[in-house]
Amino acid sequence: MDISAIMIPVISLGGMGLIFGGILAYASQKFAIEVDPRITAISEILPGANCGGCGFPGCSGLASAIVEGSAPVNACPVGGPEIAKKIAEIMGVEAEESVRKVARVICNGDAQNCKEKFEYFGIQDCKAAAMVAGGSKSCAYGCLGLGTCVNVCQFDAIEITDGKIARIIPENCTACGKCIEVCPKQVIHFVPYEQDVVVDCNNEEKGKAVKEKCNVGCIGCQLCVKACPFDAMEFSNNLAKINYEKCTNCMLCAEKCPTKAIYANFEKRKKAEIISENCIGCTICSKQCPVNAIEGELKQVHKVLEDKCIGCGVCAEKCPKKTIKMV
């Protein structure tokens, strides 16, 4: 057998491979794109779910945006402060504390509370239902409860209650914003995770119109605005809205609301407690208290009246001796 019968194909094919390899090696040098090593490092830290919650196309998109400086280091809502800290280390900056936010369905108008305009038998999807005269709910601002948001949630954080209304489980919510994007009624908003008081209504109609449609709607009576000791209640378009930065979770507004449109988790309501050994009787706390729940004479140990205290925490913040605890 002629040895060239093997050698020719081996050499020609091997030669082709070698030439192509050489060309590619040369090309990779010649056409090399310089990638900032920080982009790779940040991409590795990010969760990698590519949920798009940050507003950039996927995690790698956010990574390059952070390196470019067009996004803050805490831009990833899913990763939270932990990941923000790691990214800040790579970027060599301090991470600002970001308040954890979660999505919340701003509507309480379930089957019992809110009247239906008609019975809807179409496609079981909020987007489709919203096209039929704005949905079957008599309130044009309410949650339709057909679960379009449930389908887009990657984190199993949304459920439909028995009253046919969507509810978000704050523990599971990563604030990716997918549900907010998809909701045809714009009924889902971001709310701070620590927030225990929320106005659960979006209806901007006049009080009478709201009352006809829903038992738990905001009727624009402004009692909450008057009740709030901290000016945290904003009122516009016949609708009360809490300024979460000013709100101290004192829950006075929720107590006053005649239609219970303001949700408050009274179980989490705190009480102030003065540690008597350290109290110097400066009276600052009793002056600051918006509900006069602290009494005591100058230079005497002060006392909190538990039935009056609303747990706003103003006294604890102002106490010069830091001797007031919120429990």
């Binding site: 020719i8 194909p9 020609s12 094919l13 082709m16 491979g17 192509f20 390899g21 060309i23 590619l24 090309a27 990779s28 056409f31």
Partner: peptide
């Protein structure tokens, strides 16, 4: 070179290298 029987593998080699090259360019 009379290597018609190597057609398939040679062409795969060409296409793979070509795609890589084009991608870089």
């Amino acid at each position: 070179l009379g290597l018609a029987y190597l057609q398939t593998i040679a062409f795969i080699l060409v296409i793979a290298a070509l795609v890589q090259f084009i991608e870089m360019v």
